[in-house]
């Protein structure tokens, strides 16, 4: 009985792991395929599709856009998020108001990305603002902010208030307490939220799809539109590079803060 159970269990586990990893492994294998189409088994090993991807201005240009956009959105969203988290955690608000504020600040996580994009497109067009960079930046700050708020709030809730009192009794002014004690202690949490927001922004397609224009596109959308007409392994090469980048980013977050804290509720 128990051997049957464990056999069942082992095959089940293996099947689940294959399901989780197969598409990722397939992408990497196809990316080093020498042939012109994503064939299986591959027709020999080659890095030519990496070269092709890096030489394609549609990819490189949009990759730059995505990087700058993610950086700007993170740079703007992080201070807004940290300030909001401070206000919520330290504002001594009645709990109902506090709950409402938290719900509002985390609402971008619930509102579908495509709705955010459409709503921004419609209102900004109505207001006569049609600049793709402006639209994208506003939308992406919205994406980054809740992650920063979430990690900062968690860190503020476990923050020992006597740390600040200790600094105060040792002669620190309010500003010195903030810059020398409070912010440094919160730094890993803020950094992790910002890094996660950066990845979300960099990876976003649903919000951006309505906000780009003919001359400005982000990398995920450039790949999507390339995929409509081409199926060659250069997409696999780009995808593999993206896998490497996100994996590196995730490892950094994991080292600094622990990944589980963001993904759980």
């Amino acid at each position: 009985m128990s051997t049957y159970f464990s056999l069942f269990r082992r095959t089940g586990t293996a099947a689940l792991f294959v399901f989780l990893l197969a598409p990722l492994v397939a992408v990497i294998i196809v990316s080093v395929n020498a042939g012109a189409t994503p064939k299986f088994p591959p027709e020999g090993f080659s890095l030519r599709w990496y070269g092709a991807a890096l030489a394609n201005p549609a990819f490189t240009g949009s990759a730059l856009t995505s990087l700058v956009l993610a950086a700007v959105a993170t740079a703007l969203g992080t201070p807004l998020g940290v300030a909001a988290a401070f206000g919520i955690a330290r504002g001594k608000l009645p709990s109902s108001l506090r709950g409402l504020l938290e719900a509002i600040f985390l609402s971008p996580l619930i509102v579908p990305g495509i709705v955010i994009g459409v709503a921004l497109l419609v209102t900004l067009s109505t207001a006569g603002l049609r600049d793709a960079w402006l639209r994208l930046t506003l939308g992406h700050v919205l994406l980054v902010m809740p992650y920063v708020i979430r990690t900062s709030l968690a860190a503020l809730q476990s923050f020992d208030p006597s740390l600040e009192e200790a600094a105060h009794t040792l002669g620190a002014s309010r500003r010195q307490i903030l810059t020398r004690v409070t912010l440094p202690v919160l730094r890993p949490a803020i950094f992790a939220g910002a890094a996660f927001g950066f990845i979300i922004s960099f990876d976003d397609a649903a919000v951006s799809i309505f906000l780009i224009d003919s001359s400005t596109s982000t990398l995920p959308l450039a790949i999507m539109s390339y995929m409509q007409y081409n199926f060659d392994p250069s997409i696999a090469a780009v995808s593999s590079m993206l896998i490497a980048i996100t994996l590196a980013g995730a490892l950094v977050i994991e080292r600094v803060f622990g990944l589980k804290k963001f993904l759980g509720n």
């Binding site: 006597s162 009192e165 200790a166 105060h168 620190a172 202690v185």
Partner: peptide, 20 residues
């Protein structure tokens, strides 16, 4: 007088050592 200017030394229950 602000605590910062009282010239006191305080040991807290939680110790409040600066972790960073």
């Amino acid at each position: 007088l602000s605590a910062a200017r009282r010239n006191i030394g305080m040991v807290f229950q939680s110790l409040a050592l600066f972790p960073h």
